[in-house]
């Protein structure tokens, strides 16, 4: 019978050691074991990008990786982007540019955009669109997503990016 494996993974700056079945997908591990439900499952077939996280700093689709493959590696999810109570510039840019409607694609879009900007800090519009080709959005028509990535790259998002359940304070800072 298939045996379980012990893995140690650093997720959003916290180290976890767990016993997992080899067939456990990374996305299931993140959501069901660690409770990190910010990472979503859209298609479950490697197409939509909703499950995008960073593995050692680069974007991967966590529905298409086994948790055992992440043993000894570093994973960042959407829940690890905000720092010291401040949204990351990309999160703030998505908020200010109205880059989401239902928000289902947003964690994956932001994680992929972060990976894109790490590789190419000043992308052209075409490079942004190509960089997001593995992420599907059913709501926005992509226009404002591209604008948000551009704004984050240009550094034109507001500095007031306090993480808050009540979005009023960031709302007034938006729409530059």
């Amino acid at each position: 019978m298939a045996s379980s494996k012990t893995i140690t993974v650093e997720v959003d700056d916290v180290s976890y050691t767990d016993n997992v079945e080899p067939r456990l997908l990374l996305v299931q591990y993140l959501r069901e074991r660690l409770g990190k439900t910010g990472t979503l499952i859209g298609c479950d077939t490697t197409n939509c990008g909703a499950c995008t996280v960073h593995l050692d700093g680069v974007s991967v689709k966590s529905c298409t990786m086994f948790a055992v493959q992440a043993d000894g590696h570093n994973v960042t999810t959407i829940e690890g982007l905000a720092r010291d109570g401040k949204l990351a510039p990309l999160q703030q840019a998505f908020h200010e540019c109205h880059a989401l409607q239902c928000g289902f694609c947003t964690p994956g879009m932001i994680m992929q955009s972060a990976s894109l900007l790490a590789e190419n800090p000043h992308p052209t519009e075409k490079e942004i669109r190509d960089g997001l080709e593995g992420n599907l959005c059913r709501c926005t028509g992509y226009q404002n997503i591209v604008a948000a990535v551009q704004a984050a790259a240009d550094g034109t998002v507001s500095a007031d990016s306090t993480v808050s359940a009540d979005s009023d304070e960031t709302e007034t800072a938006g729409v530059a």
Binding site: S115, L116, G134
Partner: peptide, 9 residues
């Protein structure tokens, strides 16, 4: 090939 995430893996 595919998309950036698939190309990373």
């Amino acid at each position: 090939v595919a998309d950036p995430q698939v190309r990373h893996r």
